[in-house]
Amino acid sequence: MNNLLRRICFALASVMLVHALAFFMLHSTRGGPFDSNQQFSAETLAALEQRYHLNESLLNQYLNSLQGVVTLDFGPSLQYQGTSVQELLGSAIPVSFILGGGALLIAIIVGLSAGMFVASSSSRWRVAAVRFSGSALLATPNFVVAGILISIFAFGLGLVPVAGHRQLSSWLLPCCALGLPLAAQLFVLIQQHALQAHDSNAYRSAVARGLSKRSLNINYILRPSLTPVLAFLGPATAGILTGSLVIEQIFSLPGLGTFFVQAALARDYTLALGVTVVYTATLASCTLIADVLIMKFDPRSEAVS
């Protein structure tokens, strides 16, 4: 328990650190939020800077921003005038999380079952087919997967809408497009460990004890292979939950992905920091959860701690 507490503090500290780094790096790059588009007069610029506290010292601005992080109030967006950062994030986070969560679910189900199939099947033909599809999927970028899925299922068969997020069925394609390449990565990872487990002495001993095929597969192939999968899934989950610019654009989903790029390009300090904090916090919590799960699933990890 003590360890867990320490890990949580460590996670919080890393969020703070990343926030500080991002803040100073953003402010040290050239240009400001009001440089582009129309030319403002000197007075207007001064007034704008006054309004958004950009004329204060950097340290003061940082402390303000830090206070914003602690109170979860990141302030008004500099780019989307009249909207606060938390309003923007508040509407985008659920979209990205649903998309990412769905994709993750698909990746885990498809990746794990394909890996287990390869390790336990005796049909060489099928194994080769699954392996080939895995490698092909691994080499295909997700926007290509998205294009193929759209042309088959939306335009071709007309089963699901092309884009949008009003209906439940419209989530299916974007989740698949985002999840399938991840499933391929998971598949490659787990099949390697599952094949090792299949060749292990432990497996052979268990077969010699006359255990059923089901308990052999679950306890002697799947469970020993879970540790590396969990370690990989921690950071990968954070990446997938916080949105994918490409997939969100293709399926016109108003998720987080867009903000990552726009905020940085437009020097929208508050929005960029908000997105950064959301990403870092997600990463830290996913890694933490993965570590806790590893400890739960693999008794050997306790010996190390």
Partner: peptide
């Protein structure tokens, strides 16, 4: 499978790798 373990049992050389580390 009904005979393995129930009638004819095996024990192998390397005792560490012959046990399941997560059970």
């Amino acid at each position: 499978r009904k005979y393995r373990g129930k009638h004819v049992a095996y024990v192998f050389q390397d005792p560490l790798s012959s046990l399941n580390p997560v059970l």
